[in-house]
C-alpha cells in the first residue's frame, strides 16, 4: 500500500510538535481576519457604502470577487469593514469580562467563606439568564448600537471566567508552595495577585479565547435582529439580515458569505482555545 508513505516514513517524534494543521489553519484564518479588518480602508476594493443600482445582486466577477448585494454594494468590501465591528465587539467583551471575571473569581476563590458563597450565588443567577436575552434587555433600556450589547455581553460572560478562576484559585490555594509563601511572611494579597494569579492565567486565557467565538456569534445574532450596529455601517449579522430578501429570490451569496465568515471565526476560535488549553494541561503535568 502506498497510501501513507509520508506518515510512515517520518517517525512520530520527528513530526513537529506544534504541527497540528487545524491549529495552524485556525491561527492563519484569525490573522487574515484581523489584517483585513485593520487595513480595510487600504485594501478594500470599493467604498462599502457605495450604492450601484445598475449592478445589483451580481454574481462573483473579477470586478466584484464576492458579488454585490441588493443595492449593488460590493460584498467583499462590506465584509472587510464589517470585520471591524464583528471583531471589535467580541474583543471588548472578552477583555472586560476576563478582567472583571478574574477579579471576582480571585475574591471568591482566595477568601472563601461568605464572600465565596455570595459571589457564587450571583454567578448562578447570571448563568440562568440567556446572554442574548440580557443583551436585548440592555438594548431596550440603553438604545441600539455597540455599547449596550457589549456591556450586556460582558456581564453575561463574567461568570464563565469567574467560575473558572475561582476553581483554579481554590486548588492552587491548597498547594504547598502557597503555604511556603505564607510561612515566609508574605501578605495574602501579594501571594494571591503576584504569585497565584500568574499561575492560573494561561488556563484563563484559553477559556477567554473560546469565549471570543461565542460572543462573536451572539453579537452577530443581535445585529441580525437589528439591535446591534445600525445601518448603513457594515456588520456581518446586519448583512445577513439585509440579504434575507435576496435569499428568498434565490440569491443566496450575499447572505451566505457573512454567515460562513461567522461560522469560520467561531470554529477557528474554538480550535485555538482548545489547543491552548490542551497544551497548558500537558505542560502542567509533572
Amino acid at each position: 500500500m502506498t497510501t501513507f508513505p509520508l506518515t510512515r516514513a517520518v517517525p512520530r517524534h520527528f513530526r513537529p510538535r506544534s504541527g497540528n494543521p487545524l491549529f495552524t489553519a485556525a491561527i492563519i484564518l484569525a490573522m487574515v481576519m484581523v489584517i483585513a479588518a485593520a487595513a480595510a480602508t487600504l485594501i478594500a476594493p470599493y467604498d462599502p457604502d457605495f450604492v450601484d443600482l445598475g449592478n445589483v445582486l451580481s454574481a462573483p466577477s473579477p470586478a466584484h470577487w464576492l458579488g454585490t448585494d441588493a443595492v449593488g454594494r460590493d460584498t467583499l468590501s462590506r465584509m472587510m469593514f464589517g470585520a471591524r465591528t464583528a471583531l471589535l465587539g467580541p474583543l471588548l467583551v472578552v477583555l472586560l469580562s476576563t478582567a472583571l471575571g478574574i477579579g471576582f473569581g480571585l475574591l471568591a476563590g482566595w477568601f472563601g467563606g461568605w464572600i465565596d458563597a455570595v459571589l457564587c450565588r450571583v454567578f448562578d443567577l447570571l448563568f440562568a439568564f440567556p446572554a442574548l436575552l440580557l443583551a436585548i434587555l440592555a438594548v431596550a433600556i440603553f438604545g441600539k448600537g455597540l455599547t449596550a450589547p457589549v456591556a450586556a455581553m460582558t456581564i453575561a460572560y463574567i461568570p464563565y471566567v469567574a467560575r473558572l478562576v475561582r476553581s483554579l484559585v481554590v486548588s492552587e490555594r491548597g498547594r504547598p508552595y502557597v503555604t511556603a509563601y505564607r510561612v515566609q511572611g508574605f501578605a495574602g494579597c501579594w501571594i494571591a495577585v503576584k504569585r497565584v494569579l500568574p499561575n492560573v492565567m494561561p488556563t484563563v486565557g484559553a477559556q477567554s479565547t473560546l469565549n471570543f467565538g461565542y460572543v462573536l456569534a451572539d453579537l452577530a445574532s443581535l445585529s441580525f435582529l437589528g439591535l446591534g450596529v445600525q445601518p448603513p455601517a457594515a456588520d456581518w449579522g446586519a448583512m445577513i439580515n439585509d440579504s434575507r430578501g435576496a435569499l428568498m429570490s434565490g440569491q443566496s451569496l450575499p447572505a451566505l458569505v457573512p454567515a460562513i465568515a461567522v461560522v469560520l471565526v467561531v470554529i477557528a476560535m474554538n480550535i485555538i482555545g482548545e489547543n491552548l488549553s490542551d497544551r497548558i494541561g500537558g505542560r502542567r503535568q509533572p
Partner: peptide
C-alpha cells in the same frame, strides 16, 4: 516541607 516538587512555585 516534605515534598520539594510541590513546595516551590512552578
Amino acid at each position: 516541607f516534605q515534598d520539594p516538587y510541590l513546595s516551590l512555585d512552578p
